[in-house]
Structure formats: C-alpha cells, structure tokens
C-alpha cells in the first residue's frame, strides 16, 4: 500500500477568504456581541453586565414602539409593492423597442443614491414648494409631512414604493419572459381564461423569483434608514422612527453602546429568523 502523504498547503488557498470574512463579518459582529454584554465608560475599561442590556431593550416600550412601526411599515410596503410590481410586469410589452424603453425607465429609480431619493422626495413633497405637496394641498387635503404623522407615513411609503417597486417589476418581468410561448398557446387551446393563465401558469412560474423578491424587499425595508432619515428624520415626534433610526439615535446620539449593541443583535436575529422561516416555508411548499 502506498504511503499516504498529507499535504496541508491547500489551507493557504483558503486564508484570503478566511481573512476577508473575519474582517468583514466575524470581527465586527463579535465586537458588537462583546459590547452587548458589558458596560463601558470609555478608555477601554469594560464591566461585565450579563444579559442586562437585552432585558432592558426587550422591556423598553421605546423598542416595542419602533419594532411595531417597523413591522407595520414593512407589511404595507410588501402588500403594495409585490402586487403592484407583478401587475406592472404583466402590463409591460413582451417584444419590440418599447421593451428596452420600459426596462430603462423601470431601472432608473434603482440607480439613484438613497440619500438623494430622500432629499428628492423631501423637496417634492414640501407643502409650499414641492409639486406633490402643492397638488395634494390644492386638492383640499391638509398635507404637511413635517407635521402630520399620517402625511409623514404616506410620504415615506410613497417614496419607498417609487424607489423599490422597480426591483419587483424587473424580477417578475424576467420570470415572465422565461415562460415559453407554447404555455400560452396550450392554455388558449384549452380555453383557459386570462385569470386561469395567471393563476395556473404565470404565478407558478414566477413563484421562485417572487420568493426572492419578497425576501429582498422584506430585508431591505426592515432595515430602512437613509431615505426616511433624510425625509423626515424620524419625525414628526417619533412617528416615523423605524428600528434603524432608533438604533442610530441610541448608539450615536446617546452613546449607549451596551443597549445599542444588544438591540443590534436582537434586530439582526429578527431579520435572520423571519427570512429563514419564510424561505423554508416557501421551499417546503414547493416540494409538496
């Protein structure tokens, strides 16, 4: 039997990845974990606090309120953007020069930097100066997003829908255009109604892509920060203070590093768990 030689050199090939992941994920994450269990008053002096910060965050009504706002915001976003995106994708032309025109128009909002989106909508919705603000006020509504909570929510949601529905459209359109023409012909021959074509051909064929779209929109909207920060700064009052905005306020505004770290981890776990549960459910459903 030949002597088995072990060559450990292959490990060197893995080192770049290990370093990259370490610097970019593990070390920052562990720093946060570190902060979340300790108290510091600067000068690198730490005191062990156990799960105190976690208890504090989970019990604080401030966290509950931001979390609730976050859940409501994300739910509204998903309920509007997913069906709207699919509807637009269905209405888009299938061939011809208008395809490229539509695709470019659709992609435009995605190319704009997030803080610019916030600033754009801020100006756009100003009651005295902005086009949108003047139109709404002109229609007889008392609209001022810097003062009315309802107006602030409305503007934030409109902004997100404007900014991100395109993503759903592009994904759904890609899925739709991958359905062979023969499916539609077969449905026509069977005498299927347009609704049946959507329900039994287009929707099942879009399922995987829509799963991804929902996941992406869930994660992104759940972590939304830049646009509402620029638009409303979390106001009026705390009415549009979503989790990220709240977190930044605690960490950088109040410099409460311990609670902020604990909150970050709880936040992270919520996103991770929800995504995982959702994905598993969708994929299990697929196998059945």
């Amino acid at each position: 039997m030949a002597r088995k030689t072990t060559n450990q050199k292959a490990w060197f090939l893995v080192i770049p990845v290990v370093l990259l992941v370490a610097f970019n994920a593990i070390i920052p994450l562990m720093t946060v974990v570190n902060y979340s269990f300790q108290e510091t008053f600067g000068d690198n002096v730490f005191f062990w606090e156990g799960v105190k910060w976690y208890e504090q965050v989970l019990r604080s009504s401030r966290f509950h309120d931001s979390l609730l706002r976050q859940i409501i915001f994300t739910s509204i976003i998903l309920v509007i953007e997913i069906p709207l995106g699919v509807a637009i994708a269905l209405a888009m032309p299938k061939k011809g020069i208008w395809v490229s025109v539509c695709l470019v128009l659709m992609a435009l909002p995605l190319l704009i930097p997030w803080n610019v989106v916030g600033a754009m909508w801020n100006i756009y919705a100003l009651p005295e100066l902005g086009l949108l603000g003047r139109i709404i006020n002109g229609m007889g509504f008392d609209y001022n997003f810097t003062q009315g909570p309802l107006a602030a929510w409305f503007t934030t949601i409109m902004m997100d829908v404007w900014h991100w529905t395109s993503l759903v459209v592009l994904l759904a359109y890609a899925a739709l255009s991958s359905i062979p023409d023969a499916y539609y012909q077969a449905a026509k021959i069977d005498g299927a109604t347009p609704w049946a074509v959507f329900r039994y051909i287009q929707l099942p064929k879009m399922k995987r892509v829509l799963t991804i779209a929902i996941l992406l929109r869930f994660m992104d909207s759940f972590m939304i920060y830049t646009e509402p920060f620029v638009l409303t700064g979390g106001g009026p009052g705390n009415t549009t203070t979503f989790l990220s905005i709240d977190l930044v306020k605690i960490a950088l505004g109040q410099f409460d590093l311990g609670p902020a770290a604990a909150m970050s981890l709880i936040y992270f776990l919520i996103v991770l768990l929800t995504s995982w549960i959702f994905y598993t459910l969708m994929m299990n459903n697929e196998e059945k």
Partner: peptide, 20 residues
C-alpha cells in the same frame, strides 16, 4: 377562434401546468 375549433396540440417542449 382557437377555443371554438376543438383542436388539441402537443408542442416540442413539454408543456404542462406546473402546479397541477
């Protein structure tokens, strides 16, 4: 129209309703 012609057709690709 197709629906009123009473035809059936088989394509080169395998065309079936995916979740039936």
């Amino acid at each position: 129209s197709v629906q009123k012609r009473n035809v059936s057709m088989v394509h080169q690709q395998f065309i079936n309703y995916p979740n039936f």
